[in-house]
Design a protein around this nucleic acid. Structure first.
Lengths: 148, 148
DNA sequence: CCCACTTTTCCCCACTTTTAACCACCTTCC
DNA sequence: GGAAGGTGGTTAAAAGTGGGGAAAAGTGGG
């Protein structure tokens, strides 16, 4: 349907400095817009970073979903817009992260950048480790099924 | 449908000074008209701020709704127009808020500006916190449904 | 109907804090 | 040893806030 979803591959350990800046991995920077939308994930586990296009795509998906009532959609969009922030990368390829969002998710110093489809995530080290261990069994299950 | 709905992203903590002025976040100011319509939300929880165009759009949507009786529409529009006020931003990018509306909603000193689709809101700190907590479950629910 | 007088509105200036652009350095990998 | 990637710091510009003062609008009395 849409043009093409950007695929951010891999995990990277980077630092958030005292000015709340974080370098976007060079591999993700290439061919990517220098404009992003940052939002805190619902359970406050990590930060989501995506392009405005991806954000629109996601919004459209929510808008179109028949399993959600009109009222729930209204609430969702109110929250979604309130939680999200525009940011642009500087000449060095660094994002300035909103302080409040970082605090909410517990980001400071060394963090992990996790790739994804159309977006990437910024995790607290400990939280990431724990989440990864919880997810691995399921991952293995699917891997076995598809004969990986 | 319409040309393009302005997207006000994020939350900002600003101050209403003794002259009832409030600075519009610079990010929201850019590319926006300097004319706004302010109205108190029905349950007196917060102030709504939008462009005249957005106001027309909203009115048109209400007018077109087939599920509402003609009488209810009359009442709605009477209320809508009575509650709303014209304001323009000054050269510093500040809105002068109507005193009566601020009192109604309980706005004074530090407040929270909350972004939205085509409009933004001005909240009392405590009220905002409470409303946010109430809305978060629904937000999470929808977020899970669409796989956010 | 006009003239003081008060009140409100708006424009401007000043100050502080935050943001963002720029430069410099160190490390790693060809 | 050069180039590219990641990090740290400096500095100029922008954003947010407070307040003064002139113009405009409302108010009351002669």
């Amino acid at each position: 349907m849409q043009p093409e979803q950007r695929f951010y591959a891999g995990e990277f350990r980077h630092f958030i400095d005292e000015k709340n800046r974080i370098t976007i991995p060079a591999r993700w920077r290439r061919g990517s817009a220098e404009e992003f939308i940052v939002l805190a994930e619902a359970t406050h586990q990590f930060l989501l970073v995506m392009s405005p296009e991806e954000f629109s795509r996601m919004s459209a998906a929510a808008e179109a979903d028949a399993n959600v009532s009109a009222r729930d959609k209204r609430v969702f969009f109110r929250q979604l817009h309130a939680r999200s922030q525009h940011t642009t990368a500087d000449k060095q390829g660094r994002l300035v992260l909103p302080v409040d969002l970082c605090q909410k998710v517990g980001l400071k110093g060394e963090v992990i950048l996790v790739g994804g489809r159309g977006r990437f995530e910024i995790w607290n080290l400990q939280k990431r480790k724990r989440a990864d261990e919880e997810e691995t069994p399921t991952y293995q299950h699917v891997a076995n099924v598809i004969g990986l």
